[in-house]
Simulated scan of single mutants.
Amino acid sequence: MSAPRVLFVCLGNICRSPLVEGVARQRCAEAGLAVDVASCGTGHWHVGEGADPRMVRAAAVAGFDLSTHRARQLRAADLDEYDLVLAMDSDNLRGIRHLVTAHSRAETALFLPWTGTAPPQDFPDPYYGEAEAFTACVGLAEQAVAGLIERLRRR
């Protein structure tokens, strides 16, 4: 059986989804769980750019390296190439579901509820916030990825 493929999706692919991708990649490896993770955004504004420097700093403080990340936009083909496409918020989930066809194989869901994380339903977007908002996102990502790992182990 091949490793599950999980795609994390936010709006611009520079804050939340690259963070969750980085945390999931590291924590899955530490747990000995073979999982192929990636991230993208529903919007095109930041394609080719690195992660937001504020998120890179907050992640680095917690031991996660986002320095090699490059933003990309969600493609219809992603819904055939990934097993799980997990949205950071309800708006992103609507954007993903606009691309779903009868032939799409990916399960689509909101990230936090899918992982069994307590509220909020939507992963807060720190983009317009202060540094503390980015730090809070790192903690939430770590908590939710722990739930993701447990759920993937049960599959």
Rank of each mutant, 00 (worst) to 15 (best):
P126S: 14
D91V: 08
R151T: 02
G32K: 08
V35P: 01
A71N: 09
W114H: 12
A60H: 05
H69F: 15
F8S: 04
P126V: 13
G147H: 05
R105P: 01
P120C: 05
A31Q: 03
E150F: 01
L84F: 15
D89F: 01
V23P: 06
D89Q: 05
V37Y: 07
V138Q: 07
H44I: 09
A31K: 02
D80T: 13
W114Q: 13
V145S: 04
A59L: 07
L99G: 05
A51M: 15
L74N: 01
D65C: 09
G50P: 13
E107M: 12
S104Y: 07
F64P: 07
A34Q: 05
P53V: 14
A146W: 02
C40D: 01
A133D: 05
D36S: 11
G147V: 06
A106L: 03
A141W: 07
A38P: 03
A76K: 03
G43N: 14
C137F: 05
R70T: 12
A60Y: 02
S2R: 14
G41C: 09
V61Y: 05
L33F: 00
H98M: 11
V6E: 08
N92H: 11
G147I: 03
L74C: 01
R154H: 02
T117L: 10
P119C: 04
A58S: 06
V100A: 02
R75L: 05
P120N: 03
R54Q: 11
P4G: 09
G95C: 04
D80G: 11
G32I: 12
A77H: 10
H46A: 14
G50W: 13
E130D: 15
A51S: 15
P4D: 09
L84W: 14
E49Y: 12
C137K: 01
A118N: 01
A146H: 02
A76W: 01
D91A: 10
D36G: 03
F111A: 12
A106Y: 04
E30R: 08
C40E: 00
H98K: 11
A118R: 06
T115H: 11
D80R: 12
D89V: 07
L140S: 00
A24D: 12
A118Q: 08
V145Y: 03
D78W: 01
P53S: 12
T135D: 08
Y127E: 13
V37Q: 02
L93M: 00
A38Y: 01
F64S: 08
L148F: 11
F123H: 11
A141V: 09
R153M: 07
C15Q: 09
P119L: 08
T117D: 08
G22F: 09
T68E: 15
F8H: 01
G139Q: 07
G95D: 03
L110I: 12
Q143H: 09
V35S: 05
T68Y: 13
R105L: 10
R97E: 08
L84N: 10
T68C: 15
S2N: 13
S104H: 06
Q73V: 03
E49Q: 15
A109K: 05
L148R: 04
V56K: 07
E107G: 08
L66Q: 09
V37N: 04
